[in-house]
């Protein structure tokens, strides 16, 4: 006796195939909803802000008149912020990742720390802003300086880079570590000559993605009291500054409707920078992936 009735099977087959097809289109629709909304947003912003993207826009400070408002101060401020944040964040997080993966003993405490670093990556940026306000702005009396903001941003993106670096270091096969150690290389030589070179693409990808998160962050900057409009650029890390997201945030609040277009122009610049950074990250990841 046949356990599966062949006739029944073929009778029901068309129904199954139909369901299969219908679901495919339903899911495509869901995907499109997201894409369409995103595209509308982008197109709307670009159309709105396009005519303000003149050379003057990049070379003038903000102004109360929309036609002469520019992002010079904010752009330079953001560059300062990134230039100071990047080295602090990179040194701290790659060092942490190296310690955790290569040196730390394998015990409960270290495991606990590892788990919590991943958890830190999910802490809202406002919380880091509050930490920065208490610790750097008030306690260390750095005021609303580039350094205070950079330290805050570094702490905020630290967990992201640590986790990315850890994964990257862990993916270096133990066989090539053994090869190095087996030739009498010290641990440090093995790290600098074998592990880091092999892990660096993944680490850089993590760094860029983390920095691109920091570049768009507004909340921590607001909390540590970074001014929204500033008519000079910093000359040192202890000077105050403004940043792109702060500038955008301040324009969008202005009553003059023309400023909505200026805002759009600012957003285009910010998005372009983000897009550029993410492209570099993706390029590096694709170029160096699957090497083992």
């Amino acid at each position: 006796m046949e356990l599966i009735n062949k006739q029944e099977v073929s009778k029901k087959l068309s129904g199954r195939l139909l369901l299969n097809k219908v679901l495919k289109y339903i899911f495509l629709l869901f995907t499109l909803v997201g894409l369409v909304v995103l595209a509308t947003l982008l197109i709307d912003t670009v159309l709105d802000g396009w005519r303000y993207l003149t050379p003057d826009f990049f070379t003038s400070y903000s102004s109360s008149r929309p036609e002469s408002a520019g992002i010079y101060g904010a752009l330079i401020g953001t560059l300062w912020l990134m230039a100071v944040t990047a080295p602090i964040a990179i040194i701290l997080s790659v060092g942490t990742a190296l310690y955790l993966e290569e040196y730390a003993p394998k015990n409960r405490l270290v495991n606990f720390i590892k788990v919590n670093i991943s958890n830190l990556a999910g802490v809202p940026s406002v919380v880091f802003g509050l930490l920065g306000l208490t610790l750097f702005v008030r306690l260390m009396e750095l005021d609303s300086s580039v350094l205070a903001a950079a330290l805050t941003m570094s702490l905020m993106i630290l967990p992201v880079i640590v986790v990315a670096s850890q994964e990257s270091i862990r993916s270096v096969p133990s066989t090539i570590r053994e090869a190095s150690i087996g030739m009498g290389a010290t641990k440090w030589q093995t790290i600098t000559r074998v592990i880091l070179p092999a892990a660096v693409p993944g680490i850089i990808t993590g760094i860029i993605l983390a920095l691109s998160r920091a570049i768009g962050e507004t909340a921590p900057l607001i909390i540590i009291g970074i001014p929204t409009i500033l008519l000079f650029t910093p000359t040192g890390v202890l000077d105050t500054f403004s940043a792109l997201p702060m500038q955008i945030y301040s324009w969008v609040k202005l009553p003059n409707p023309e400023f909505q277009s200026v805002t759009a122009a600012g957003i285009i610049v910010l998005l372009f920078i983000l897009f550029l950074m993410n492209s570099v990250a993706i390029y590096i990841r694709n170029k160096y992936s699957k090497r083992f």
Binding site: I176, A179, G182
Partner: peptide, 8 residues
């Protein structure tokens, strides 16, 4: 070693 393990 058992598996060839050159450096990349």
């Amino acid at each position: 070693f058992q598996k060839p393990n050159p450096f990349p």
